[in-house]
C-alpha cells in the first residue's frame, strides 16, 4: 500500500479539473507529435535538448570507462607485447596493400577523367566512437561522440573496417545518432558485385539479416555473392561492401525470390566507426527521385516502396547492367 507522503490536503478544487488538464496536455502532445513527424519542425529543438541531456550520457559512460581503464592498466606485459607484434604485422601487410591501392586509385582517377565520369574518390574520413547508451532495443540506432562541431551532417554515410554501418539521422552539438542498415526502417541501394544487378537491401530489425525483396526469381544471384553499395541514393558512395547473400529461395509460382543477406559490418560489436565525407563535386546527383527518402528521413528508400519505386529495382536486373552511364566502381580492397 502506498503511503501518502507529503500532502494530505484535499486535492479537489485547486486549479483546473483533472480531466481538463489531461485534455490540454494530450492536445499539446498530439500537436507536438504531428509537428515532429509531419512537419519536421523540431530538428533544432531536438538538437538543443540532445545537447542538454549529454551529461546524463557521460554519467552512464563512467562505469564502462572505469572498467576499461582497470583492465587496461592491469593487463600483463607479455600479452601487450604479443598484441603489439601482431598489430605491427598487420600494419606491414596493410601498408603493402595500400601501396598497390594507391597506384590503382591513381589509375582509376585517370581513367575516370578520360571517360569524364563524375564518380570520384575524393573522400575524407573521421573516426568516431560509439557511445554505449541504450537508445531503444527495438530500433537499431546508436549514438556516436562526434557532432556538428566536427562537421557531422544528417545523411552522412558511416562505415567500419568491414563495410557500411549506416547513416547519420540526427546531429547535435557533441553527438549524433546513427541508424544501422539492419533497422527495419532503413533500406540500402545495393548491387551484386559479380554482375552488377541492382536491388535494395531492406533492414529486418535483426542485426544479422537484410532482406532483398525486389529480386525476381530469374535474377542471377546466389549465396555468397557480395553486395556493394550502388550509390544510386546519393548518400552512400558506390562500391562499398554492404552484405553477403546467405539465402536464395526461388518459388516457381512467385514473382520474387526470397533473398536474404548478412551485413558485413560488425554492427553489434564495433566500438569505432568511420564517418565519411564524400567530395560533393565528385558525387553524382541522385538520379532517381524514386529512391530519395520521403519522410522517414533515415531510409534511403521507403521500406515498402510504392509500385512505381519497386519497378526500377525489379525490371533493371533484366536490362543490361553495363549501360554506359552506369558507374561500376570496384570495391576498395
Amino acid at each position: 500500500m502506498v503511503t501518502l507522503s507529503s500532502d494530505s490536503r484535499p486535492i479537489i478544487g485547486h486549479g483546473p479539473a483533472l480531466g481538463a488538464r489531461f485534455f490540454f496536455l494530450a492536445i499539446a502532445s498530439i500537436a507536438l507529435m504531428v509537428a515532429d513527424h509531419r512537419g519536421g519542425y523540431m530538428e533544432v529543438t531536438r538538437s538543443w535538448l540532445q545537447t542538454a541531456v549529454n551529461p546524463l550520457y557521460v554519467v552512464v559512460q563512467v562505469p564502462g570507462q572505469f572498467w576499461g581503464w582497470l583492465t587496461g592498466s592491469f593487463s600483463d606485459r607479455s600479452r601487450l607485447r604479443t598484441e603489439n607484434a601482431q598489430l605491427n604485422d598487420e600494419l606491414r601487410t596493410a601498408r603493402v596493400k595500400l601501396l598497390r591501392f594507391d597506384a590503382l586509385t591513381e589509375e582509376n582517377r585517370r581513367l575516370r577523367a578520360i571517360r569524364n565520369a563524375s564518380q570520384g574518390m575524393g573522400e575524407r574520413t573521421l573516426i568516431a566512437e560509439i557511445v554505449r547508451v541504450d537508445v531503444d532495443p527495438y530500433r537499431h540506432r546508436v549514438r556516436i561522440n562526434k557532432g556538428s562541431q566536427d562537421g557531422v551532417f544528417k545523411g552522412q554515410p558511416v562505415l567500419d573496417a568491414f563495410g557500411i554501418v549506416g547513416q547519420v539521422t540526427r546531429v547535435d552539438e557533441i553527438g549524433a545518432e546513427i541508424i544501422l542498415i539492419s533497422d527495419n526502417e532503413h533500406a540500402t541501394p545495393v548491387q551484386v558485385n559479380r554482375n552488377g544487378i541492382r536491388s535494395i537491401a531492406v533492414g529486418t530489425g535483426d542485426i544479422h539479416r537484410l532482406n532483398l525483396p525486389f529480386l525476381t526469381i530469374e535474377s542471377d544471384v546466389k549465396p555468397d555473392d557480395l553486395l556493394v553499395s550502388s550509390g544510386l541514393d546519393g548518400i552512400f558512395p558506390a562500391g562499398y561492401p554492404v552484405a553477403t547473400i546467405t539465402k536464395v529461395e526461388r518459388d516457381p509460382s512467385a514473382t520474387f525470390a526470397v533473398v536474404e543477406a548478412r551485413p558485413l559490418a560488425q554492427l553489434d560489436r564495433a566500438r569505432e566507426v568511420l564517418l565519411l565525407w564524400v567530395d560533393p563535386s565528385t558525387q553524382p546527383a541522385p538520379p532517381a527521385p524514386a529512391v530519395k527518402p520521403a519522410r522517414p528521413a533515415p531510409s534511403t528508400a521507403p521500406a515498402s516502396p510504392p509500385p512505381t519505386t519497386a519497378s526500377p529495382a525489379t525490371t533493371e536486373p533484366t536490362s543490361a547492367p553495363e549501360a554506359s552511364d552506369e558507374p561500376t566502381t570496384p570495391p576498395p580492397p
Partner: peptide, 17 residues
C-alpha cells in the same frame, strides 16, 4: 522522448494517460 524516442510526444502522451 528526448533520450530514446523517434518522435517527440510519443512517450509523453503515454505517460500522461
Amino acid at each position: 522522448d528526448v533520450v530514446k524516442g523517434p518522435l517527440f510526444g510519443q512517450h509523453a502522451v503515454a505517460y500522461l494517460l
